[in-house]
Amino acid sequence: MKRIIQLTINDKEYEVAVEPNQTLTDMLRYELGLTGTKKGCEVGDCGSCTVIMDGIPVNSCLVLAMQANGRKITTIEGLETEKGMHPIQKAFVEKGAIQCGFCTPGMILSSKSLLDKNPNPTEEEIRAGISGNLCRCTGYQKIVDAVKSVGK
């Protein structure tokens, strides 16, 4: 049976009626139209559905919408402000870290979480930090370069 949950997404309060078997990914995408959160595998293998929940990046495909009740969620749509793109987004654009772009939202959110904790990561720390997000296009080098450029 549907239940109403309340949560904060990208600093905005939401009340959403959700089914118990609805994942956070599906709620974001299909109920709220926040389609920047992608679905690549739906079982926590690829990381393209990454969102930041209470400060921690997680696979939203493995979180029930109801589990997100009362929590604070940041999706890729929340990084851009009226001042423009987030510095990490800009770095991804400028360094050529984006090819097909399907892993990009998750990759950027994992990078943001890493940089929030560790503003000057080494290359190895960056690689470890984004290792939950698979990319088939770039070979990761330019993503690593982009994250490094923001770190400095």
């Binding site: 999706t75 749509e77 793109m85 987004q89 800009k90 400028e94």
Partner: peptide, 11 residues
């Protein structure tokens, strides 16, 4: 920079 990159970076 690629012309499609900003849209992809912002979801």
């Amino acid at each position: 920079p690629r012309i499609d990159a900003p849209d992809k970076a912002t979801g």
